[in-house]
Amino acid sequence: MFAYYPIYRGYFRTSLMLMFQYRIAMLIWLLGGIIEPLMYLVIWRTVSLQQGGSVGSYSTNDFVVYFIAMMMVSHGTFTWIMWEYVYRIRMGQFSVMLLKPIHPIHSDIADNIGYKFLTLTVMGPTVLLLAWFFDASWQPAFWTLAAFVPVLILAFLMRFYWEWSLAMVAFWTLRIDAMNQAYIVVTLFFSGKLAPLTLFPEIVQRAADLLPFRWMLYFPVEVLLGRVTPRDLLIGLGAQLFWLLAGYLVMQLIYRAGIKRYAAFGA
């Protein structure tokens, strides 16, 4: 574990430098991550105000806090790897990565974390600004706040391993746009990005329980909002660990098969 520390430090450095070079791109991704939750925040806030101040168990303020939290969690856990891989394989960058004596996922994780830290400088003020603008009030319980840290880290890793696995599909076909989009749509409905899951019909909620997506986004948001019981928290942590492990295994399998294919066919 600690053997990776100097490697990660090196990656951080270079990725930070790259990001300065591509500072525009950096801001653009960031803006995208702000717009979507903001859109749904506005819609649900409008609906809630129209309905006399609440929808289901969510008050107008709850909606505001929910989507701001969703913005943070989504930003904290998102990856761009599914778009990056096609480019990598097409441009032959992947061959270079293979030559390095370390699994390529590490440089991606380091890149991602580096980006997240850097963009905190924009995300932080944005969140505060939105909270002020929409007059959000949020009283977290101390224990859920503490639990949020491991939950977020697990969500991040889970998402990383799963999306990295999906990115590997690029070894078989470079035309992955439809798949990526399907993934986005599915997450939209089952992760709580579009609306809190409790506002969906029963069947969607049950399906969401069985899929990994709610544990990537909805669950961390609920924890941050303090909308969980200790029992929920434990179940959620268990589900996250399960999906993380599954993601890890899937990633290993797909990666090995992908490398084999890459070696056989090239790009």
Binding site: D177, A178, L188, L194
Partner: peptide, 21 residues
């Protein structure tokens, strides 16, 4: 598939929202 998915998002979003208003 992509267009159908887009339509799902648009109509699904509408459906969820107008389920409550």
């Amino acid at each position: 598939v992509q267009s159908a998915l887009d339509l799902c998002v648009a109509l699904g979003g509408l459906a969820v929202v107008f389920n409550h208003t």
